[in-house]
Write a protein that binds this DNA or RNA. Sequence first.
DNA 1: CCTTATACGGTACTCACCGTACCCTGTGTG
DNA 2: CACACAGGGTACGGTGAGTACCGTATAAGG
Lengths: 218, 218
Amino acid sequence: MARAGREPGQAASTRRRGAALEEAILRAAAEVLRESGVPGLTMDEVARRAGTNKNALYRRWPNRVALGVAAYRRLAAARTAPPDTGSLRGDTLEMLRRANSTWSSPYGEILRGLIAAAGGTPELLAQLRDPAADGAHEAAWLTLLGRAVARGEAAPEALHPRVAYVPMALLRNEYVTLGTPAVADAVLTEIADEVFLPLVRGRGPQGGTPAPQAPPRA
Amino acid sequence: MARAGREPGQAASTRRRGAALEEAILRAAAEVLRESGVPGLTMDEVARRAGTNKNALYRRWPNRVALGVAAYRRLAAARTAPPDTGSLRGDTLEMLRRANSTWSSPYGEILRGLIAAAGGTPELLAQLRDPAADGAHEAAWLTLLGRAVARGEAAPEALHPRVAYVPMALLRNEYVTLGTPAVADAVLTEIADEVFLPLVRGRGPQGGTPAPQAPPRA
DNA sequence: CCTTATACGGTACTCACCGTACCCTGTGTG
DNA sequence: CACACAGGGTACGGTGAGTACCGTATAAGG
């Protein structure tokens, strides 16, 4: 089965080139990723499914991982409209739950596999980052935080990318250090209630500390 | 060169067994890790250096990654006495800088390589976690925080593992999402000044929010 | 319409490494 | 002293990355 690389409708004698062929390869690679995950993504298999050969692949991507990343980008649709539950806590938990289910889904496994396979190569990681990669954009967190500030639930100084992304960083950290199974919902609420909400709420200077900006290098 | 697996002092006819052989294997594996990193850690090479063969290896570890993890544990000494600079900010930055230099060092690269190779296997990740793995124990952060509470620099409610580990999680997140190069010092101070210190300082309830414990599931 | 550079397709091959299978031999134990 | 067992030597099967040719369809250019 699946010996044919082209659809039956296409004339078998048509030789694909350029963008058309690239499309077919990426489609095949994405299919393999979905079916067999990152370890199953072999150049031979992708070439076979695309009805071409490894030459065409290596002419476009330098190695297996690069192809995998390119293929993943078409798998990850930009599915993140920030939630609006009316409270910061609700929004936070909703975002965390979305991300958690994405990361523990097959797509999340693929993403984690690719991150691992990238082995810290900055270019590959960058390509993996933008396309809705973690199931939640940084931008979404900022708008969500912005609404909270408007409602008076959060201090204006908290409207900072580094602050906004704290919950996602903590969640990702769970996956990195603990491994595959989905993170328990209790952890999500703990991240929200013990870290994010307190952080975002009170930032009034009540402890004696040096100037928060322009640190004098301890 | 390096054809001989045993030291010249040893009688060549002595056949090592049990713990002695295991020692030799782990020593060889750690050596390979140091010289060639995780990708260079091949079973053949380790067996060659240890002056034995792959049988002895597979009799003890199920696969290459397991051996790598075991070898790493002897590389990572327990080098973390929590700093005591007198201020929470100083301690925090010191811890972050230590961790940053560990993670960007060759040892950090090995650790990151092993985490990647573990592919999310919980057991392997667990073995990687305890031995000073990230260059900073959770315990160290807790004692450091405890001192800050005693000095009045931090609110008592902040003495919580999830809170204490926030800086490390954020730092690790940088490595995971950005890749190899060392994290800039400015990022460390930002983590301290924009996130950790504000979080730990003011936790007074000043925004209107539902009960922080026992969430009613949004 | 013919020529030509280019990219496809097909195939075979090298290389490295994982993991396994034998088989012989040294060693500690009963 | 016999024997079970682990160590040592070696070879092998299998898989997948990446490379090398070589003939050929196709698009571009004269």
